[in-house]
């Protein structure tokens, strides 16, 4: 890890508890990403994923530690870090064009109207909303609203895109298309992106690195999983790749059992040196003995 474009250094977030004490969401969290990488955080609700993202965005402040982006410690929000909100957060009194233009004029305050419009239009076209510029958010479907959210985030040409479960409120079909769009855009523009998700397949499809977080409170970053699948993976034949199930099982196993027991079983966890795992063929994908196969046929099929 030579090029640390984003570096989260020992951050902690504590809230005042009901009994006057402090409830710690997470302590001493270290995480770094290189330029152009796509990182996904996976963990159960309440593990502080959103807090990490909000701190990265500058919407929240860590109780301790610092975040360094492109060599500079962040202070508050910045136009370099665009956020795509879970609830799309469009301004309902503005049109599609108005919402994107609002972001554009925020970044380039002295641009004239025509230039702003042309720039905004470019990103509306990019997310495939050509023709809907003058609609209001209430006239759009959930997927279209989130496309506007993506266009708005991209239009300010940020250094990092931060996404807080951007597709979780969408139906499976729309989610798939939007994942394709995001992946295409990120690959084309070399965008650095940081996403929070619940969806294992989404993480496998989109992410270069998957950060596994244990359950909160007192959550830790347990493992960094490097995606072994080729960069030019497609969503349709993703599951046919020989490494796919090794990767998927590894993450699911973590979510199902290890995320709960991690704190109790792993005593020598070093938060500054989180193990990096690269599931692949070398990892025994079929470990069950014939006897086990008999007793748990469902598992056999899954593997």
């Amino acid at each position: 890890m030579t090029d640390k474009f984003i570096s989260i250094e020992g951050i902690a977030r504590r809230y005042p508890g009901a009994d006057g004490g402090q409830i710690s969401v997470f302590e001493d969290l270290w995480l770094s990403m290189s330029r152009g990488e796509f990182g996904c955080v996976i963990g159960h609700s309440g593990c502080g994923k959103t807090t990490v993202l909000n701190i990265l965005a500058g919407l929240d402040e860590p109780s301790e530690g610092a975040v360094i982006v492109d060599g500079q410690a962040i202070e508050g929000t910045s136009l370099d870090r665009a956020v795509i909100f879970q609830s799309h957060a469009l301004l309902p009194w503005r049109t599609v064009l108005g919402n994107v233009s609002y972001a554009v004029t925020s970044k380039w305050r002295n641009w004239d109207r025509a230039k702003v419009k042309a720039h905004a239009q470019k990103f509306i076209d990019l997310v495939g909303l050509t023709g809907s510029e003058h609609k209001r958010p209430s006239e759009l479907s959930g997927g279209m609203k989130q496309r506007v959210g993506i266009a708005r985030a991209l239009s300010i040409t940020p250094k990092i895109m931060l996404m807080d479960e951007p597709f979780s409120a969408l139906d499976a079909l729309t989610r798939g298309t939007l994942q394709d769009e995001v992946r295409r855009i990120c690959l084309e523009t070399g965008q650095t992106a940081f996403m929070i998700t619940h969806d294992v397949d989404e993480a496998i499809y989109l992410a270069d690195k998957i950060f596994l977080m244990t359950n909160g409170p007192g959550a830790v970053l347990a493992e960094i999983v490097e995606n072994p699948l080729p960069k030019d993976r497609g969503r349709i034949d993703l599951h046919r790749h020989p490494y796919y199930y090794a990767l998927r099982n590894h993450i699911v196993d973590f979510l199902v059992s290890r995320s709960k027991t991690f704190a109790a079983t792993v005593t020598n966890h070093d938060p500054r040196n989180v193990p990096i795992v690269r599931p692949g063929l070398s990892e025994p994908t079929i470990v069950a003995s014939p006897k086990m196969i008999e007793t748990s046929p469902a598992q056999t099929i899954a593997r």
Binding site: L59, T77, R81, V83, F85, A103
Partner: peptide, 8 residues
């Protein structure tokens, strides 16, 4: 938050 992230 939208306004804040856009440094408005």
């Amino acid at each position: 938050n939208v306004a804040r992230t856009l440094e408005v």
